[in-house]
């Protein structure tokens, strides 16, 4: 039984992910048999309440983006359940899935490659509305113009091509496209990573505004902890395809339990020179180990300052150690 299932099954869960795995075959023999697999996502459990923002943080290669893509089945999961409003998305037919996509939308990282360079802004934003036959003609036009204004752009820009816009404006266009169908869930895949600092704040605030206005639920994937912290209600920390800690934002920072989380947080340089040498630091040594030859025990063992013999051989499970605070560590920090 997964941790999530043990938890009371209240109706306010919009999304539940149980034991989700995505393994990519890396090399195959000439007979098509898989020699090596990359376990990008390796058995994760997550849950998402209506109206909240769940942040997923982790370093490159931890599987956070793969998780986001798998939820929409842009990548087919290897194993596990993705229960969205009581329905397991993994079991849905392609056609059914296409209908469900109306309710789950995505915002992408790269504002330059996420918009078709040969389509005008109007058509980009109209695409979801046309695809699902929501509106046409004058009605469609009104809706698109309203969306353009909702995300803080001027309607006179509708007939322009994407390359005429700056990164921040393009991201606004991407957001307008994502909210066009009034989805229930939006997966934001590092939406501010590629933007300038002063623009990041604009986009983060825009997302928060839209959440309030349209009652949206977000999964916010990011590698920048400050940004994830700012926007999220709860945060899941991923490391090498697994969730190592998941709890509310307050608890994650005030009662950090996993050594990796601790190291991740204290690695972020603080924009205040007075705190330069005063903050306590947990420096995580070494690099991420080879992802094709995963260690048997705890995957963080090779970099953990507190690792023991037990950690080397026994893999810790994700346990709820206090209300809504899940940790996968044999020796949680105090």
């Amino acid at each position: 039984m997964s941790v999530v299932e043990v938890k009371e099954k209240t109706n306010n869960y919009l999304l539940q992910i149980e034991g989700l795995k995505k393994h990519f075959p890396v090399s195959t023999t000439i007979f098509g048999k898989t020699k090596q697999t990359l376990k990008a996502v390796d058995g994760i459990d997550l849950y998402l309440k209506k109206g909240e923002t769940l942040g997923i943080v982790g370093e490159s290669g931890c599987g956070k983006s793969t998780t986001g893509n798998t939820i929409l089945r842009l990548i087919e999961p290897t194993e596990g359940k993705i229960i969205f409003e009581g329905e397991d998305l993994v079991k849905l037919s392609k056609k059914k899935m296409q209908e469900i996509r109306k309710d789950i939308q995505m915002i992408f990282q790269d504002p330059f490659s996420s918009l078709n360079p040969r389509m005008k802004v109007f058509d980009i934003i109209a695409e979801p509305l046309r695809t699902h036959g929501v509106a046409k003609g004058k009605g469609l036009e009104d809706m698109v113009y309203e969306l353009i204004e909702t995300v803080g752009l001027d309607r006179s820009l509708a007939k322009r091509f994407p390359h005429e816009f700056s990164g921040g404006q393009r991201q606004r266009i991407g957001i307008a496209r994502a909210i066009a169908l009034k989805p229930k869930l939006i997966i934001c895949d590092e939406p501010v990573s590629a933007l300038d600092v002063s623009i990041q704040a604009q986009i983060l605030n825009l997302l928060l505004d839209l959440q309030r206005k349209f009652d949206l639920t977000f999964i916010f994937i990011g590698h920048g902890i400050p940004a994830v912290k700012y926007i999220s209600d709860r945060i899941a920390v991923m490391y090498m395809g697994e969730v190592v800690e998941m709890t509310t934002k307050e608890k994650l920072f005030s009662e950090t339990k996993h050594p990796y989380t601790k190291g991740l947080i204290s690695a972020v340089p603080i924009p205040d020179p007075k705190l330069r040498d005063k903050t306590e630091r947990v420096i995580i040594e070494n690099d991420i180990p080879d992802q094709l030859n995963l260690p048997e025990g705890c995957r963080f063992y090779s970099r953990c300052p507190f690792g023991t013999e037990r950690c080397k051989v026994e893999k810790p499970k994700l346990n709820e150690i206090s209300n809504e605070h899940y940790v996968a560590c044999h020796y949680p920090l105090n």
């Binding site: 929409l72 296409q98 996509r101 939308q105 490659s113 996420s114 695409e127 699902h132 496209r177």
Partner: peptide, 22 residues
């Protein structure tokens, strides 16, 4: 592999349409 194709897929567009439009 461009994200706009992924974006269109995530919207629920059919493969044939993606090929034609994107």
């Amino acid at each position: 592999e461009r994200e706009y194709v992924k974006a269109s897929k995530s919207i629920g567009t059919k493969s044939s349409e993606i090929m034609l439009v994107h």
